[in-house]
Design a protein around this nucleic acid. Structure first.
Lengths: 341, 341
DNA sequence: CTTAACTACGAAAACGCTTTCGCAAATCTC
DNA sequence: GAGATTTGCGAAAGCGTTTTCGTAGTTAAG
């Protein structure tokens, strides 16, 4: 019926619990004959030690928590995939929590994970603006509790822990430079994640590329859109404002939507307007025309984060300094941009 | 540094551990003054009870395990989303494991989860053919241990537990009927998951729809493809074999690929060949032409599974009979099919 | 034959928590 | 003021393990 315990095995053989434990661990202290009997019994009745008890004893759970803002976002799923892969390789399992882009949910989740369920945490925060301070405190408490922490992608700078970030500045630079190299001089940006500091980094790269070519940065070419904003309308303003020959869109779905709108208005992609999207998911490859994307290598980000975390968990002694790993992006050139000559 | 425990608080006040525990639970046994002091101290030093200890004590972990074959498959991610949503509502957290379509990995995962880490399990198995028997035994052991189990989507019939399945027969029927109702009489099937019994159910529905119209079933119109098979080649055979006016494709990515290949060969979609895909993910909506899909409501499947599981966990006493919930699919009509008149 | 060394096992502590029970001291009852 | 009741807290058991230490009984050494 319910789970077999050492106690029950001990009772069956009329021996002490410790004897059973030792027998199952093949201890030299126990006679061969008793050992083999106990082992046989354990196998026959399918004994499994209770992990909770073991975890309580040696204060590790061999489990790591992964907290992501949105489980329906392909980038984060890729990260999850990478984390799982690496964690399993090292004998860890993962407990996944999606915060649904809600700060409150994230707070609750972190509170929950403080209670000893995991050895370490891999987190991409939804915090922004004033929420950073709240989080610095909360994460600080976690660290004080001895919890190991790795932030990734959407990180908070001032928290003293390891970090794995995507080289967003370079990504923005790379995309913009590609446009400039392919006769697209008038580059706009559509930003569906205006609150996140990530978008600021990408725009920084964008500015850098413009500056290199002595092109004046025009803030009007940056179009913020969020769930409330009508992309259609924002794009109208943009296209009427000036002749645009290229658009960099900071996520995948919005990129596809922008492309559809632009095409509906009679522009040819890429000849009239070239488009580069961010986050290489499943969409961009199969859309027509297929879309040139910045790939952030989510799976690799996940693997790296897991590696760093487990490394730190397993040698807590070594007070090694915190590191920030920067993962380079790749530009996957497809049909939504003109070819480089 | 490390986690604050009741013991430490007790030591600080020079009282017994039990006193502290009671104080924090606001027990009437403890004087108001001491209670408020202890509470204040706990809050100030950010005390959290250790969940492991509590779980060990009352033999539940408030955690459920979700085992899915592939975390990069949108359907399963939707299920995960649904499970998380429902589980969180009821105060449970989830531990996710992806088996990567590997039977060995699934066995390992189940072994792992047997060890008391979770109260219940939501599982979609990768087992097929002879592996069913192995699994019946393994799952049987889990059930004997008192683990609550809900199978979903890819279920094993003979296991005595709750199940949540998609009405795949009706889905196949519905899709096929739509074709027949819109002047597409020659319907082929492309099956990227030939080993799974799910595809057989869908094909059963397909046959049923044909039979209703007295159309003879032709096995040659069922094209199995797997990772090894070249879809391009298989499609050539099919298109040369007979004039095809409609194709039902049993997953999303393959559906999109089939559509691209068909269009490349000069067929117009939907006028020459109409296409319906399975599993409504992100792709189908944005592809050109947008694709008509069977939606399996993954999120709802997940919610239902979680509901059923938690229900059973929380009243173990009631030996209520096992149920199989059947989730209906929807046909989302888009541009890859002709309109129904 | 005495002492030392093994052999084979049991007892108990520990992990952190909850809960039951017991028991003083203080308060109340008549 | 004696007995009854209440108040406030501590001791201990228990959840399932592992591990350290102790100790019988047996064997080996001198």
């Amino acid at each position: 019926m319910s789970k077999l315990t050492l106690k029950q095995i001990a009772a069956h053989f009329g021996v002490a619990v410790s004897t059973v434990s030792k027998a199952l661990h093949d201890s030299y202290e126990i006679s061969e004959s008793l050992k083999s009997q106990i082992k046989a019994y354990a196998i026959e009745h399918n004994y499994r030690p209770n992990r909770l008890a073991i975890s309580l004893l040696n204060k590790n759970t061999k489990t790591i928590g992964v907290v992501i803002p949105n489980i329906l976002n392909y980038f984060f799923v890729q990260v999850l995939f990478g984390v799982e892969k690496e964690a399993n390789k090292k004998g860890y399992s993962i407990i996944t929590c999606s915060t649904n882009e809600s700060f409150e949910k994230e707070e609750q989740t972190l509170e929950f994970l403080r209670s000893g369920a995991v050895d370490g945490l891999i987190l991409s925060t939804v915090a922004k603006g004033g929420q950073y301070k709240v989080h610095q405190k909360l994460l600080g408490q976690l660290l004080e509790d001895g919890m190991q922490l790795v932030l990734f992608d959407r990180v908070i700078e001032d928290v003293a822990c390891d970090k794995v970030v995507v080289d967003d500045v370079e990504a923005g630079y790379k995309a913009t430079k590609y446009f400039l190299d392919t006769q697209c001089q008038s580059v706009a940006v559509v930003n569906p994640i205006p609150e996140s500091n990530i978008s600021q980094l990408r725009i920084e790269g964008y500015k850098k590329a413009l500056a290199e070519r002595d092109i004046l940065f025009d803030p009007k070419l940056i179009v913020d859109v969020d769930k409330q904003t009508d992309i259609d309308l924002s794009l109208s303003f943009l296209l009427n404002y000036k002749t645009i020959t290229a658009i960099m869109v900071l996520d995948e779905i919005t990129a596809v939507q922008v492309m559809q709108i632009v095409r509906t208005r009679g522009y040819h992609v890429p000849n009239d307007i070239a488009i580069i999207g961010f986050t290489n998911g499943q969409l961009s490859k199969y859309v027509t025309p297929s879309m040139t994307m910045i790939s952030q290598h989510g799976s690799y980000v996940g693997e790296t984060a897991a590696k760093v975390l487990i490394d730190r968990i397993e040698r807590k002694d070594g007070k090694m300094p915190f590191k920030t790993k920067i993962i380079k992006t790749s530009l996957l050139v497809r049909e939504s941009t003109k070819p480089r000559l």
